[in-house]
Simulated assay, not measured.
Amino acid sequence: MVPLLTTPLPVPHGFTTRLGGVSEGPFASLNLSAATGDDPERVAENQRRVLAAFGYPEVAGLKQVHGTEVRLVEGPGVWEGDGLLTRTPGLLLRVGVADCYPLLLYHPEGLVGALHAGWRGVVGGILLEALKRIEALGLDPWEVHLAIGPGIGGACYQVGEEVVERFAEAGLRTFRKDPSAPGKYLLDLEKALLLQAKEAGLREERIYRVGLCTHCAPHLFSHRRDRGRTGRMWGLVMLPLTPVAE
Rank of each mutant, 00 (worst) to 15 (best):
L202W: 01
E58R: 15
G183I: 13
G67L: 06
L85R: 07
V210N: 01
P8T: 14
L19F: 05
A197E: 03
I152D: 00
A117P: 02
V163G: 00
V65W: 01
N31V: 10
A168Y: 00
Q158C: 13
L131Y: 06
G77S: 04
Q64T: 12
V11E: 10
I207R: 13
R166W: 03
R42C: 09
E246N: 14
G151S: 14
L115R: 00
L194T: 11
R225T: 05
M233K: 00
K184G: 07
S222F: 04
A217E: 15
L220Q: 02
Y106G: 11
K198N: 11
S23Q: 09
L236R: 01
E165F: 07
F175G: 03
R176F: 07
L128A: 13
C156P: 03
G14K: 06
E80D: 05
R225L: 14
C100N: 00
R87L: 14
A245M: 07
R71H: 02
K184D: 09
R232I: 07
L127P: 07
L92I: 10
P108N: 12
G67N: 08
V22S: 02
V22R: 03
G77N: 07
L131Q: 06
E24K: 09
M233Y: 02
D39Q: 11
S33Q: 07
T7A: 05
L212C: 01
G83A: 08
Q64E: 08
E162V: 09
G14Y: 08
H107T: 15
T88Q: 15
A147P: 01
V122I: 14
F54N: 15
G183Q: 09
N31S: 09
G125D: 10
P218V: 15
A200N: 06
C213V: 04
